[in-house]
Design a protein around this nucleic acid. Structure first.
Lengths: 349, 349
DNA sequence: TTGTAGGCGTTATCAA
DNA sequence: TTGATAACGCCTACAA
């Protein structure tokens, strides 16, 4: 069966040592004679020995794999935000000797996948994407005692699990306040799906700023849907068609903003002069912060920016660290997006 | 160690049968008494028994995992094209009982990863993404005897490995010819990186059409780079700044075209009337063929369209089928993109 | 500092 | 039709 692969047995025979010693030498056990260890290392390199992960996993109970589940409701999560996160996380995994296991399933089967993961011990932990407000996956994973980290939060007891999130409420509040202070009154929010907690947080931040500015929120200035390009296009057309259109729009994603820009250019409405725009920018790598280079001085879009790829990298690190240390403590990180002043909110003061 | 998981031993004891029989019953061996099999199945469901993949893999030599390597040169492959492919493939894997293993590494380490895969038998096969012209990964995989399927081709002996590709040359030739027949003479191609074979194929198709139309190719109408949005923007600005600007532009990706559209709208150049545009459309799900719904009758962009997500799904199926059947034959599929007439090439005749 | 022996949970071979 | 028994390749008490 073993075609050409060197295994522990062969290697130890080649060295005239026991498998135990060889294993210990390679795994950095302190009791091994340094001379022996060096000899073993040389031979291992020479014979190109790599431990078989299935055997190791069977023996240790550790899979050295982290699971990511992509729920396939419609086209929802297969979006660039997700892929950038994955890229960052994957980078960290590779560095730390872990593999990423991806499972794409219908949304209603996601719980079953976690059960399967826990049951078969195929992964040591999972990353939960796109938490809803009060997300059943979190309860399930706790019950299954499968370690996990959430990218985002679910709005409930946040001390009871590990997460990495950005300050959605704070940044949207600040952005809204920024617009109010510049004299805007009718400010639209083209938001993500509000069943997702991040979108809810953003809406809350927006609302809080309006309240502080003594502005009554207008229901017709609030849109909520999956953050795809066409949504931005349609929502913007609707907004501009109102009898009292907004003078400023906040877009929850650059993707949505691109659809918005398409609509605005059709109408002949110029961003920055005719209308103010602020976007939330995940710093998606394939867009390279599109518009960044429009003007040599300032970026095109005024934005709240936080790299989702960095988030993926950091999330992976946090998770691995906690499972490697076997600590049951939960870890949390709240990132503050950077506020970037661009041309889309008019000339700088 | 085993927390709550039911294993073969427990299950067989519970049933008063040997592990052998239980294993055989569950794995569909024909010699098992149907009554016994049914009894075993019931008990397995009841006790929630799932075979441990590490143990199974160790015993069979099959990992039931397919490897995908994402090279991290710059930001290259972490693009939406890739993630859509992954989504399709992942769907097929889940359906067929396989898992997807993702490894994100620096480009120069990609070969090493394949060696590692082969050596440790962590995956049963791999999918090769974004083949270059004459791609060393293919030689390596053949040498390692690790089964693989290429999404695309590398321009060499295409019978020697399995692949799934779209007819890049043919569709770009047709698109170019279409423009020539409508009276266009100065046709620009904003292409992908031509070290990638798909981009080379596209350029060849474009050249062939020009030649057939007795048009001398102009070097200044040809751009080649990573298919990100800002590239489309810059390339378009350059094209429009030429002393003899093109009357038509072909964009190699909708992402690039979005950058192009941004530039054109800045200049005040109207797509469809001032300039003709054709795009290659991978039917990226999060864009939902942006512009599709601009006009109720026709889509906005005239395009060559082929779903990259479908390609991922099909590629996975082809690969799994070939490794499950243990056949050493190579499989190939060449897809013809659909030509979709939209508004961006002017009014329909 | 090194070695022996047993176990991890399956599958597969050979008998019965 | 079913059952012992031996791999698969590694790790890890326990012993020396």
């Amino acid at each position: 069966m073993t075609k050409s692969g060197t295994n522990l047995k062969k290697l130890s025979q080649h060295l005239g040592l026991s498998q135990t010693t060889v294993s210990r030498a390679l795994n950095g056990f302190p009791e091994v004679n340094e001379k022996t260890r060096e000899r073993v290392r040389m031979a291992a390199r020479e014979l190109n020995y790599q431990p078989n992960p299935s055997a190791a996993s069977l023996a240790t109970g550790k899979a050295r794999q982290i699971g990511h589940v992509i729920p396939l409701s419609d086209h929802t999560m297969i979006n660039p935000h997700f892929s950038d996160f994955i890229a960052g996380a994957g980078e960290a995994y590779a560095r730390l000797g872990y593999d990423m296991l991806l499972r794409v399933v219908a949304q209603r089967d996601e719980h079953e996948v976690y059960r399967d993961f826990a049951n078969r011990r195929r992964v040591d932990a999972v990353v939960v994407h796109g938490p809803l407000r009060g997300d059943g996956r979190i309860d399930l994973l706790q019950q299954l005692e499968l370690p996990f980290l959430v990218h985002g939060r679910d709005g409930r007891d946040e001390a009871s699990y590990s997460w990495l999130d950005v300050d959605n409420a704070g940044s949207f509040r600040d952005a809204t306040t920024f617009l109010i202070e510049r004299g805007h009154h009718d400010i639209a929010l083209v938001n993500g799906l509000e069943t997702m907690n991040f979108a809810h947080q953003r809406m809350q931040g927006y609302r809080a700023a309006l309240q502080e500015g003594n502005i009554d929120p207008r229901r017709d200035l609030l849109h909520s849907a999956d953050m795809v390009e066409p949504y931005g296009y349609h929502a913007t057309h609707e907004l501009l068609g109102l009898s009292k259109p907004p003078s400023a729009i906040i877009y929850s994603s650059i993707l949505v903003a691109m659809g918005g820009a398409r609509a605005l250019s059709e109408i002949g409405c110029k961003i920055g002069s005719d209308i103010a725009v602020i976007i939330y920018d995940d710093a998606l790598s394939f867009l390279a912060s599109a518009g960044e280079e429009t003007s040599p001085n300032a970026p095109f879009f005024t934005s709240m920016r936080s790299s989702i790829r960095d988030a993926g990298r950091r999330a992976a690190e946090m998770l691995i660290k906690s499972i490697d240390h076997g600590s049951a403590d939960h870890v949390h990180e709240l990132w503050e997006p950077e506020f970037v002043l661009g041309a889309s909110t008019g000339d700088a003061p």
